[in-house]
Design a protein around this nucleic acid. Structure first.
Length: 299
DNA sequence: AAGATTGTTGCTTA
DNA sequence: TTAAGCAACAATCT
């Protein structure tokens, strides 16, 4: 599941690869993934080039010019979306990556061969031989082109960003005052804090020693402070290690994220807690999501 | 073979 | 009016 660190990694990598290169061809195999006008999609993008790639929360923003106006290609990867950039023809194996075994290997991050595969739904060509594949097994992801005004409206719906200046203890405290929902559900809300998903929320709460079921308003100042600090540090560290691969995520070169090696609770149910070494990590459902925690270390 | 998987939206309920 | 809760969505794996 691409969350903030994974999307940030993709943003940084793609910025090195596709900026200011002319889009020479676009192949759309699954039109329903284009959520804006389908007829305008190619019309707007063909011949254009992206001059900047940005990110808010888990949403990628590709800026380009259409005539004198700036427009924006928004891409959300949702759960299984991937961007794979291929600079040479070497990886393109003529469209046969469709065996069960091969697609599994592919999703697990072992990009050995086979592009496009049956999950390559939208394909951008840059110049003669550079190709950007948008793959999405579950077809939850989407692309859409918006104007500046539309972009501003969308941006305004996002909460504070863990990496930005306004992510301060003061602001954090203010936002978390008197909220009656549990801390897990609250941290997942994109209009509160943008970019956190199921993996990082579980990791942040474990690091903070706070049970995911705790009501926000009932947290002590010290506990809340830990949640704040750990949100910053864990997100930063995850970006440093190029994100987490749990099932489907790979970066734009098809490589896995290395933060997987640092996961302490996510996916670790039935194993011993790495901190107290005496209690099994439990997995329950909170906020409708699989939730991992140590009942001894988290209170 | 039914249930779990998750990010987001939009509807319902309090 | 606002906040919280939850079903729905899609496709695949266990």
């Amino acid at each position: 599941m691409p969350e903030l660190p994974e999307v940030e990694t993709i943003k940084n990598d793609l910025s090195q690869k596709v900026l200011n290169k002319k889009i020479s061809k676009i192949v759309i195999k699954k039109p329903k993934l284009v959520k804006s006008s389908y007829t305008n999609f190619k019309k707007d993008l063909l011949g254009a080039s992206f001059f900047e790639i940005d990110r808010i929360g888990k949403l990628l923003i590709f800026s380009f010019r259409k005539g004198k106006k700036e427009k924006y290609l928004l891409v959300h990867l949702k759960m299984t979306g991937q961007f794979i950039f291929v600079g040479h023809n070497s990886l393109v194996a003529g469209g046969h990556a469709n065996s069960k075994e091969e697609s599994k290997r592919y999703r697990m991050g072992g990009l050995e061969k086979g592009l496009p595969n049956k999950f390559s739904h939208i394909i951008f060509y840059f110049g003669e031989k550079e190709i950007l594949y948008f793959n999405d097994m579950r077809q939850f992801g989407y692309m859409k082109i918006v104007t500046k005004d539309e972009l501003d409206i969308i941006k305004n719906k996002y909460g504070i960003e863990p990496l930005q200046k306004n992510f301060t203890w003061k602001n954090f405290q203010k936002i978390f005052q008197n909220k009656k929902t549990n801390i897990k559900a609250f941290l997942l809300k994109q209009d509160v804090i943008s970019g956190l998903g199921n993996i990082y929320v579980d990791e942040i709460l474990f690091a903070s020693g706070v049970l995911p079921t705790r009501t926000v308003a009932a947290l002590s100042e010290g506990e809340l402070r830990k949640v704040f600090e750990n949100t910053k540090s864990i997100i930063k560290k995850a970006i440093k290690y190029r994100g987490t691969t749990f099932s489907d995520y790979v970066d734009s070169s098809g490589k896995r994220g290395n933060f997987s090696d640092f996961l302490k609770v996510y996916g670790k149910q039935k194993t011993l807690c790495p901190k107290c070494a005496r209690t099994e990590i439990l997995k329950i459902k909170v906020a409708g999501r699989g939730t991992h925690f140590c009942p001894y270390c988290q209170n």
